[in-house]
Amino acid sequence: MTITTHSVFLDGIEQRYHVAGTGPVCVAHSGGPGISWDSVRMRPLEEHLTMVYVEPIGTGDSGRLPNDADYTLDNYVRYLHAVIQDLNCGPVALLGHSHGGFVALKYALAHPVDALVLYDTSPVTGAEFFADAVANIQHAGAEVLAAFTSQHAEMTDDELTGVLRTILPAYFAEWRLEFEPFRAATRIWSAPSRGQDGPYDVRDRLGEITVPALVLVGDRDVICGPRWAQQLHQGLPSSRLRVIEHCGHIAHVERPEVFYAEVLKFLA
Rank of each mutant, 00 (worst) to 15 (best):
P91L: 07
L105R: 01
S98W: 04
G207W: 07
I35L: 11
T186F: 02
P237V: 10
S239M: 09
C89R: 11
S39W: 07
L109R: 06
T149S: 08
T186H: 01
P192C: 05
L80D: 05
L177V: 08
V40N: 01
V77N: 07
G195W: 00
L95S: 03
V92S: 02
F259M: 03
G34K: 01
H111P: 05
L45M: 13
V163T: 13
H252N: 15
V103I: 15
L264E: 09
M42Q: 14
C26P: 02
A135Q: 14
A213Y: 01
E208A: 10
Y107A: 06
E154F: 07
R183H: 08
E254R: 10
G126A: 12
A173H: 15
E46N: 05
V83N: 05
T72L: 13
H6Y: 12
A135L: 14
R78T: 06
A153K: 11
G60I: 12
D132K: 11
A170E: 09
L116P: 03
T156Y: 05
I244M: 14
Q234P: 02
G58F: 02
L118Y: 01
R194M: 05
H249S: 07
A251D: 05
V253H: 12
A184Q: 15
G23H: 03
A140V: 02
E257M: 06
H139Y: 12
S122L: 12
L216W: 02
F179W: 09
A20Y: 04
P33T: 00
Q230T: 15
I223W: 10
L65H: 00
S36F: 11
H81P: 05
V163G: 01
L73F: 13
L145F: 14
H139S: 15
M51I: 14
E180I: 11
H18S: 08
A82N: 06
S36V: 14
G58R: 02
